[in-house]
């Protein structure tokens, strides 16, 4: 089997586990939905304010939900030594990271696609003809977020205070991605400058490429004991 085959096998395993347990799905959809509704309720008084805060609201909901799903993706690994067993198979450590990344990215992207129409309805977002660009923003933004979340979730997986440490450690690193994603969303949804939105998307792509190389290269240090 090739390294690509290992990556696909591990991603399929993670997704199958999530489909069975629905542990992350229930928590993240509920949490993200509540975050969006509360913000929509809080900022609905002033005319036009909802559309202004919509990009931030969407990415705040996605980011918090993403932390939950990343932490959950390692929870099943910790039960009864499954992750330890995984590390003893004759496969490159990078395939373990990329497999989990693929599953987390796919999950976060789907979550983003679910939250987008909710945001459009609650926040009067107007995508116009730029909806394809918006989907691309979600794909690139969630990729960057999943990269950092998957890496730091592995780093904190064996710690007792992992639930509190994970967001504390990862959010400073993920801020550039969130800022770029929010700005790109603002330009796309706010009938802004399409050229500027493309610049932010290029920046997002650059962040993603750098993070995927760095995280994959140093992942084996995270798993050493």
């Amino acid at each position: 089997m090739t390294d690509f085959g290992f990556v696909m096998t591990l991603a399929r395993k993670d997704l199958m586990q999530e489909l069975r347990s629905k542990a992350a799905t229930v928590a993240t959809i509920f949490f993200a939905g509540i975050v969006l509704i509360i913000q929509a309720f809080a900022f609905s008084e002033r005319e036009g304010l909802l559309a202004i805060i919509a990009p931030g609201a969407l990415w705040v909901a996605l980011a918090f939900a993403g932390v939950i799903s990343a932490a959950q993706s390692y929870q099943s690994e910790l039960e009864e030594g499954a992750f330890e067993q995984l590390l003893m198979y004759p496969i490159p450590r990078a395939t373990i990271f990329l497999g989990k990344l693929l599953a987390n990215w796919l999950y976060m992207s789907i979550l983003g696609f679910v939250l987008l129409p909710i945001s459009i309805v609650f926040f009067d977002m107007n995508l116009g003809a730029s909806w394809l660009l918006m989907l691309l923003t979600i794909l690139l933004g969630t990729l960057g977020f999943a990269l950092i979340a998957t890496f730091y979730a592995a780093l904190t997986a064996n710690l007792r205070a992992r639930e509190s440490l994970l967001p504390v450690l990862m959010f400073p690193v993920v801020v550039p991605i969130l800022l770029a994603a929010v700005r790109a969303t603002r330009e796309i949804a706010g009938a802004g400058n399409l050229g500027i939105s493309l610049s932010w998307l290029q920046l997002l792509l650059a962040f993603d490429l750098v993070y995927v190389v760095v995280c994959t290269a140093i992942f084996h240090f995270v798993t050493e004991d």
Partner: peptide
């Protein structure tokens, strides 16, 4: 000793 299996599979 622990087995190392995935519980929901």
């Amino acid at each position: 000793v622990l087995g190392g299996h995935y519980q929901t599979l």
